[in-house]
Amino acid sequence: MSAPVERTPLGHRDPIVVGDEARLAEHAPAGLLILRCEPEAAAEPFRLATGVDLPRAVGTTGIGDDLEALWLGPDEWVLITAAEPTRLRERLRAGLAEQHYQLVDVSDAYAGIEIGGRHARNLLAKLVTIDLHPRAFAAGTAVATMLAKSSIWLWLTAEDPVFRLFVRRSHADHVWCLLSDAGREWGLPPAIPIGRVPLQVP
């Protein structure tokens, strides 16, 4: 039997770098977990288990050693880790055992894309309606929003700027092509979506 082969959602797309103008690359963290819980009761056990304060307001993030928590809703967070998430999951299960909570591994359900370069904000502004100006969207801000017709989480990790964008795996190639198209102005190449196949309509 052939040995198992892992494929990242955008493994078929090479990173694109156009000087310091704009760059686009897949950035797939090892672990993504959705946490749902009642923050009043669970914030403290969560902090004890992870060392991270659960963010409590829209746009905010909690950053720890190899764990970032992005606020998605009053009782919903995505936890991002560069390490394999099993240990984190076990730690949380132990820490939250007394809580009503849900922890779902979605590491495979999302694609991560990193968007950098000095035109990153302008590039994203062609597709995202929210205000990305540094005054409104500083490093450390993360939101759930729409990119064209796809739901995304958008997180500014560094003021350089470096954006990390998470999108459902099945939308990843479409979003990649939209981003690449939005960067045409700064030299990004046009990309043909893998979904461009002929249809036979019933």
């Binding site: 459902r168 099945s170 479409h174 092509c177 939209l178 979506p193 893998i194 979904g195 461009r196 036979q200």
Partner: peptide, 29 residues
């Protein structure tokens, strides 16, 4: 705007999409 042609609307693809294309599948939405 830019939302025309193949960028008009997302076409969601499964992780096995590439194999279906290679197998000569006929697709529907």
């Amino acid at each position: 705007g830019q939302h025309v042609g193949e960028l008009f609307h997302p076409r969601r693809t499964t992780p096995m999409h590439e194999a279906h294309v290679e197998a000569g599948a006929v697709f529907e939405l």
